[in-house]
Amino acid sequence: MLKINQLHKSYPIGDSSLHVLKGIDLTVDEGEMVAIMGSSGSGKSTLLNIIGMLDEADEGEYILDGLPIKNLTEKKAAVYRNKFLGFIFQSFNLINYKTALENVALPLYYQGMKRKERLEKALFHLEKVGLANWSHHLPKELSGGQKQRVAIARALAANPKLLLADEPTGALDTKTSYDIMAFIQQLNDEGKTILMVTHEEDIANMCKRIVRLRDGVIMEDKKVEQVRAEQYV
């Protein structure tokens, strides 16, 4: 699914620079569910953003679905983001003046899908996350858990191969977190590849593999026995 080789990234800070990723090697296969862990500031988000083509590495090789990601035009990058990738953010990032349904339909709009078809498809995904009845509500009328579910529906709408989630449960209480995790596990069961940043052990243990970052390198990379989230719901 994706292959990363000796990836480096640093941020300029004044005259000096902050070397955040110092040679990351990582391979993720189709159908995996990987948790990226590490203390705050260890570069988890930076790595995920590079994988998501929202940011660029300084050095190293990154191959996504057989395609080398290097010096892409912003237009090409947009197309890949739209087709291959689904994003789930800690702060949901819903567009606040659009209804749940319209938010979910947005990636399909950028695919050039007709309005009617788009809204039907969006409604289907909203149903899947159990929010069909909330389709015409604005984000501000939804609870945190509901917002994240809308965001998940949106990430799924374009049927991406890879789902990237940066602390998807970071802004939610424990019960809602498990709720969301149960749903993400279900997506993985259905075959989606999932990459998730978290700093919570219990959430990480609900994945199938944990990658730990420290000082800009991968300190540990191990498969784990997946804890099912349903049992807590």
């Binding site: 998501g52 929202l54 912003e74 237009k75 947009a78 197309v79 983001r81 739209n82 087709k83 994003f87 990032n93 819903l94 567009i95 947005l106 990636p107 950028y110 695919q111 949106r154 374009a158």
Partner: peptide, 16 residues
């Protein structure tokens, strides 16, 4: 800006 960032993450090209 943030909204534009979200749109771009969802696949909007700069031209759009």
């Amino acid at each position: 800006t943030k909204e534009i960032g979200v749109r771009r993450a969802l696949g909007a090209t700069p031209f759009e």
